[in-house]
């Protein structure tokens, strides 16, 4: 089913059967509506709720906990970037967002997430752990791609929001993508859903008024890389390659780049080895935090 209604049920995900496309405005509305159901990690959301009701807990700690979950982070950022708070410039730092909206509002977001979201098995496999690994990688190589570390982290954490939304929208079609070659994946996603998961994620972030630099990083994370370019578009691409090296069993899709491709951006083998180790260590710490 494409985002505007059912596509032809032809039995072959790679056939050239045409699908209808909706008006962009309708599509974004559908994406946003589906995004409302995106599950958060229940343990983590409960923890945030508890922290927000404890006067001894700092906003920094709350922000650090919030940003362990991409969906919760996205919702807090959305709130901070809403016109209600009237920020002059888009906010991508979870810490700034928490400071701006206050603990009570963050607690409300967490409570709402716990009560309204659907079961976690509706997400793509390894959605949370993969997002965390890519976020760590993005932050670690932000300097190479001339991105501020905060925006880089946000881009990594939020890069697969679109995948979560599309799977939530139609899990059967999404799971059929598993049997589509990596090279054909983009066109097949567009044919099935009328939009790729990168475009869906970027559209959501745009609607939520997140910074353009984050949106650009999310929008192109499987595009054919222009390897000499060191801007944000290639940041998530490179980070996915590192995350895949750290956790080859936690990828729901094959990254566009190989590790050796990273040499072209000046990431030598020594640094790649260290980065992979760091991603693994931080993921272990995250697992301990989440019990």
């Amino acid at each position: 089913m494409a985002l505007d209604g059912p596509a032809a049920a032809d039995g072959d995900p790679c056939s050239d059967a045409p699908s209808r496309t909706s008006e962009p405005g309708d599509r974004v509305a559908q994406l946003l509506a589906t995004m409302e159901q995106m599950p958060v990690q229940p343990t983590l959301a409960m923890r945030v709720l508890w922290m927000c009701n404890d006067d001894t807990v700092t906003q920094t700690s709350i922000a650090q906990t919030v940003e362990l979950d991409p969906v919760l982070t996205a919702r807090v950022l959305r709130l901070a970037n809403s016109t209600h708070y009237g920020s002059r410039e888009p906010i991508s730092s979870t810490h700034r967002a928490v400071m701006m909206v206050g603990c009570a509002a963050v607690g409300n977001v967490a409570a709402d997430a716990v009560t309204t979201s659907v079961s976690a098995d509706r997400l793509p496999a390894h959605f949370w752990s993969h997002s965390a690994a890519v976020a760590t990688a993005c932050q670690s190589i932000a300097d190479v791609f001339r991105m501020p570390a905060t925006e880089a982290f946000a881009a990594g954490l939020l890069h697969d929001l679109g995948a979560g939304v599309l799977r939530l929208f139609d899990p059967v079609r999404w799971d059929e993508l598993e049997l589509v070659t990596p090279a054909a994946r983009e066109t097949t996603e567009r044919r099935m859903f009328g939009v790729t998961h990168e475009e869906a994620g970027a559209a959501i972030l745009q609607a939520w008024r997140l910074p353009d630099i984050v949106m650009v990083a999310v929008a192109g994370h499987h595009a054919l890389p222009r390897l000499r370019e060191q801007g944000p578009a290639n940041l998530v691409l490179a980070a996915e390659a590192l995350a895949a090296a750290a956790f080859p069993d936690r990828m729901w899709e094959v990254p566009a780049l190989d590790l050796k491709d990273l040499n072209r951006w000046g990431l030598n083998t020594a640094r790649i080895g260290r980065l992979v180790s760091r991603i693994r260590e931080e993921a272990k710490e995250l697992e301990q935090v989440l019990g």
């Binding site: 895949a244 090296a245 956790f247 080859p248 069993d249 190989d258 590790l259 050796k260 030598n268 083998t269 020594a270 790649i272 080895g273 992979v276």
Partner: peptide, 20 residues
């Protein structure tokens, strides 16, 4: 100056292997 290519070789293999 750098880790030997063998290290990246190991990582390259790991990327293509199911750890479990």
């Amino acid at each position: 100056d750098e880790f030997t290519p063998g290290l990246l070789g190991d990582l390259d293999n790991e990327v293509r292997t199911d750890p479990l």
